[in-house]
Simulated assay, not measured.
Amino acid sequence: MNLKRKRILNLIIAAVATLVLLISWNLFQNVSPATSQQRTSLTVSAAISLSPALTEIKTVYQSSNPNTIITYNFGASGALEQQIQQGAPVDIFFGAATKQMDGLQKANLLLNETRRNLLTNRLVLITPKNGAVLSDFKQLTEAKIKKIAIGAPKSVPAGKYAQEMLTKLGLWPQLQPKLVLGNNVRQVLTFVESGNVDAGIVYTTDAKASDKVTVRLTAAENLHSPIVYPLAIIKNSRNPAAAKAFVEFLAGDRAKIVFQKYGFGTAR
């Protein structure tokens, strides 16, 4: 190879090297902070009555924490507990009663010192928008009320609270033939909205979310166990640090505003 060809080859090699370096530098410069940092995924199993509030909170949280990807698994607290007991990959459990959280704690499935009671709710009797006007729970025994929807007491906390209330009022034996059991409290709400039942018992937060039902009565709090929503991180969480950060946000003032907007109270 003569000197002239060698010089041209060297110039070509230098030019290619410079081009590669410039491309690499531009790619590096264009990487956003969100993609240059590792993304973290969290799975939150939560009572279905929390779905509207938590959906809004997710948007708020991810706007300032774009690297945390939150996936919700909504359902009846009893069903969610069973999934976790069977090894479902869950980071946070947010239930609608203490019973299911007690079960997980007894099975040693909770991360130590992360359990807390966060929210409260109320139990209400609803009818379809233009349904029967009821001013006393005893009117549920009347012939005009043929079907009453409640959550299945064994797996749906709202149904368990309803059973406790109706039992204390001495109405449970009479009303059992009229009961239509829902798999979760939102299904109970749907039964009432559609007019397939004459009345239903749900949380005040569920009734507030619908313009197709009317709240007729609110149950006195001494007629059932305290309605408390406990929250905890699961011991086998793949991302305990991110889970703790989200739990702290849920317990903070910004999330409290959202929960109150949807009708939840704050646990003391």
Rank of each mutant, 00 (worst) to 15 (best):
P66G: 01
E81A: 14
R7F: 08
L42H: 08
Q105E: 15
A132R: 07
K160G: 11
Q139H: 07
N130T: 10
L118C: 08
L27S: 05
K154D: 15
L42W: 06
I148H: 04
K6R: 13
G200M: 00
T127G: 04
I227C: 01
S64L: 12
L19Y: 12
L231A: 07
L54E: 14
N10P: 00
V228K: 02
P177T: 10
N222P: 03
G95Y: 06
Q86I: 05
G252P: 08
P153G: 07
E164Q: 15
V124Q: 01
R238I: 04
G131A: 07
N10F: 12
T59C: 03
S210E: 09
E193M: 10
P66N: 01
I48F: 01
I13V: 15
L3A: 02
G103M: 13
S45V: 05
A47E: 09
I233E: 06
N130W: 02
V90H: 12
I8K: 12
G265I: 05
Q100F: 15
K256Q: 14
G87Y: 10
I227N: 03
K147D: 04
V16L: 15
P66E: 02
N184S: 10
P33D: 02
G195Y: 10
A34F: 03
V44M: 11
E142L: 14
R186F: 03
R115G: 11
A242V: 08
L166N: 07
V44Q: 06
Y229K: 02
G195Q: 12
V247P: 07
N236S: 15
M165N: 09
A17M: 14
K4G: 00
P173F: 05
R116N: 09
V31M: 09
I84G: 13
A47T: 01
R268L: 07
G131C: 05
R39S: 09
Q85M: 15
L231Q: 11
A162L: 00
S45C: 11
L134F: 08
Q100N: 14
T141Y: 07
L250K: 09
L80W: 12
Y262F: 15
I148S: 04
T266D: 06
G200D: 01
P173K: 12
I13P: 04
K138N: 14
K154G: 11
P240Q: 06
Q187L: 06
I92L: 10
A199I: 08
G95R: 07
G78T: 13
A255I: 12
R254L: 13
A46N: 06
A96T: 04
L11Q: 10
V247F: 05
I257C: 05
A149G: 09
A158T: 09
F94R: 08
Q86H: 12
V188Y: 03
W172Y: 13
D136G: 05
N112R: 14
N117E: 14
N73C: 11
G200S: 04
V20W: 14
K99P: 06
R122E: 10
K208N: 11
N30G: 04
V213I: 08
E113T: 13
V215G: 04
S45Q: 14
S64W: 08
P89W: 11
A97R: 02
F246Y: 15
Q260C: 04
I150P: 02
G195A: 10
T266S: 13
